[in-house]
Structure formats: structure tokens, C-alpha cells
Design a binder for these strands. Sequence first.
DNA 1: GATTTTGGTTGTGCTAGCGCAAACTCGCTG
DNA 2: CAGCGAGTTTGCGCTAGCACAACCAAAATC
Lengths: 242, 242
Amino acid sequence: MKNNRHPARHGLLDESLLTQMPPFAMLRTDQIREILDLATSRRYEAGVAVFEEGFDAERFYVLLDGHIRVVRISEQGERIIALHIPSGQLFGIAAALGHTTYPATAIAAVESVALSWPMHLWPDFVARYDGFATQTYKTVGHRIEEMSSRMLELATQQVEQRIACAILRMINQSGRKVDNGIKIDFPITRQNLSEMTGATLHTVSRTLSAWERDGIIESQRKHITVCDPHKLVILSGTLAPT
Amino acid sequence: MKNNRHPARHGLLDESLLTQMPPFAMLRTDQIREILDLATSRRYEAGVAVFEEGFDAERFYVLLDGHIRVVRISEQGERIIALHIPSGQLFGIAAALGHTTYPATAIAAVESVALSWPMHLWPDFVARYDGFATQTYKTVGHRIEEMSSRMLELATQQVEQRIACAILRMINQSGRKVDNGIKIDFPITRQNLSEMTGATLHTVSRTLSAWERDGIIESQRKHITVCDPHKLVILSGTLAPT
DNA sequence: GATTTTGGTTGTGCTAGCGCAAACTCGCTG
DNA sequence: CAGCGAGTTTGCGCTAGCACAACCAAAATC
């Protein structure tokens, strides 16, 4: 997934890009060709917003490479990370759920590449491509489940457990095996982690320091490697993060 | 909505029952007749579970009358209320989002009546009845938005603000105008409110007592009337509850 | 390679809200 | 109508985690 970082400008997109992606997995090559011909491809620098909360939901996206953070901001300016989107998934599909504007902001966590289509093609996609709707709604289902689990955590768990859950979740979704453990393969700062757990970055930092002392994790700046996942699960209160 | 509490056993259901409900609003009478003929109607006592987390998602439901609480329980036995379903809405539609089991428990908050259909009819409904899918996914969209707002609250707001948000939300969704203000038209205990906000029932009780002293609300056991919604909005930090 | 920026660590109060405990009040049931 | 159970109120001490603050270190920029 990390290769081929600049897949193409229009017309040069390779069919194989979409074949592994759930929403398109069961389509024939010629169908994928059609879809690609309608797509706009764009690269986003790390930190750049793909779309912003409140703006007209004109397009829907599929992430080809990279990682997206879905973010909401409270009136007091506090930020939370509602969701992480790994590559291969659809995002910005709010309009398919009846919204006219994006209900959250999508920010590239690393340099990312996404295809997008104007929203008016959505009904065509659903009608024409078998399994597209099903796969999409499955994705929605997962995200709902994840959100409800996170609500449960926020409402009932201590900060330390919430941090553990957040890390386990990221490992499950985007962990890469490395020699000394499993590494989260996109950058996360303590600040980010605090925005995922509703804690302060200070508390997060203290907690991670303690875990590092105990050999549970290793962390470089912006990167975390879990050496002892099992201990983390214990700490998390085993809410079996989704 | 409060009349006709025992709409019927099979075969005696009245078409008019469904015409005001969004998912069926744009259907012809004969289509509604078809749908009703396939439905099972059942009454649920207050406190009874319509379905439970983890069980096979065999049926989907529409609430004709009453109120449903969607509940999740943590491993430590802590409960949270993820959602309130007012009458007229679909619920238990997890299978349409790719789940094979219900991801949460649905409990009747008051004596309630719901229709249900076996899940295998879902694809037919979507295919045959125009607008059914659209309306359904709109509902899903609202619930996602509500959940994400609540995550934002849980992560960033103080307990008092969260309680204010929770009450405002219920008022918007199911407030009934009464002489001294607006009343939430289903029973809520302090315990319930604590399960919605991730606070203890003690703190909730204290907060409501203070508000009652200040004339913002009036409360009887299991019932809350908001006398001064504006003050509550101020207290809520105006996250514009969804 | 000096400087600035961004991210991380750590220490020290302080307080919101929890945990525990006790008592009180409706409304129901036998 | 006594007794019970469910819901509520209130007091008190304690602590998890926040706020504030100062400092450190990697990495980007010039």
C-alpha cells in the first residue's frame, strides 16, 4: 500500500487499485474502469483537510493510500478525533445518509491519496454496482459500532483504560508487525491521543511514560510500538475494542 | 400517538398507523397494506427488552407507540444509554448495516408497541418500496450525528453541561408543551440521566436540585419539566444538541 | 550548524466529581 | 395501613486527573 504514492492523474489510474477495496471488490474489471474514469484523484499533504465540517457535501471519497482523521471541534475550540480512516475505505459519505453538509472535518494524518466522485453519482453507483451498497453500509455499521464503544468507554472508563483502548483499536486497524512488537503505522502525537480519549496531553504523556518504564510500549516521537499487547488488554478493562 | 394503545393482533392493523412514519410516508395505501400483512405486532411492558445485545439480529422493528432506550453494558456492568428511540422510528436495523447480531439492547422505557418483520424481508423492502431505503439511511445519519455529538460532549464538557445537553436533546426529540414549561414525555430517573451522561446519579441529583432551586426545571419523580429552556442552553455550553 | 518550531516530559497544587453512607419520600402490594 | 421497594436527596472525605508552569529534545528551516 505504501508503494505507488502518486497513482495518477485522470485517465492513468490502474484498475488494480480498487480491486482490493471492499466497496469495489466484487466488480468486474470493466466496471472498475468505468468508475475510475469518473474519479478525480488527489494527493493531500499531512495535516491538510480533505473536507471541512459544515461545507456542502458535494463529493464522496475513497482513500487509496495514507490515513485520515475525522475530527470535530466544540464551540470552545476543543477538538476530538471521532474516527480514523485507514486506506481502502470510503469516507465523506454523509450525503448518502441524508446530510447536505459534512458533519465533521477530514484531515490527512500522513500524506494521502484519495479518489473522489461527485455525490450525484452515488445513486448510480448503488444501482449499478452490485455489492457497493452492501459493502458501504457494512462500513457504516462498523463505524457506528466503534463510536458506540467509544461512548461506552468515555462514559465508564478511567483515562488510563481509555488510552489503552484507543491504542489497541489503532493496532487492530492499522498495526504493522515490527521486530520488537506491533507498531501503529501512522503518526500519533500525545495531543492526538488526548483528543481521542478526552484526556489532557499531560495525562497521556505521563501514562505512556509509565507504560514505557514497564516495557509495555516503546515510543518515539509521533510513533508508538506496543511490545506487550496482552498487558495493554488487561489495562484496558478488556472492553474488546472495536 | 397515545391513543389506541393496542393497535391489533395480526390482520387487524390499520393502514393509517404507518402513513405518518417517515420510512413509509411516501407509500401508497396498498403497499402499506402489504407491509402490514407481513408484520408482527407486539406490546412491551415498561422495562422489558425488545431484543438484547449479542443475540441474532433476526428482525427489524418500527416503534408505533412508546419509547425505547438503546442500552449498552460494559464488562464491569456499567450501563450507558446510547440512544432514545421515539415512536415512528425504525430500530434494530443493525443487520442492514452488516451486523449479524444486535450490537445493543433495546428496552421499552414505557409500555410500548412495535411492529417487526423478519430481517430477510429487508432487501425486498428496500427494492420494492421507494424511499424506504433513503428514509432509513437518513435516520441512520441522524443517529450517527447524535452519537458523535455525544462523544464530543463526553470528551470535552463538564458534567453539568452534559446533563443540560442530555435534557435539551430529549426535549427536542420528545418534549411536550405543558403549562409551566416543556416536559419530557417519557419517564427518566436520575439513574437514567447518569447513564446518558457518564456521571453518577448522585451528581445528577445534586445538579437537578440546584436547577430546581434556580427555577430552571421542575421535577417530579421520574419526570422532568423544563421551565426555562434558554438558561439550560446557556448552561449546556450551546453545543446545539442534536 | 544555529535557530525556531513542534512535540514530549515532569513537577506542583487544586478541584470537580466520585465513592460511601445515611436518611427520606413517594407509590405500591399484600 | 403497614411494610416494602424503588427513586431521590444530602453530607463528607478523597482522589483522579486537570490546570498551570517550566523545561527538554528532536527535527525542520534557513
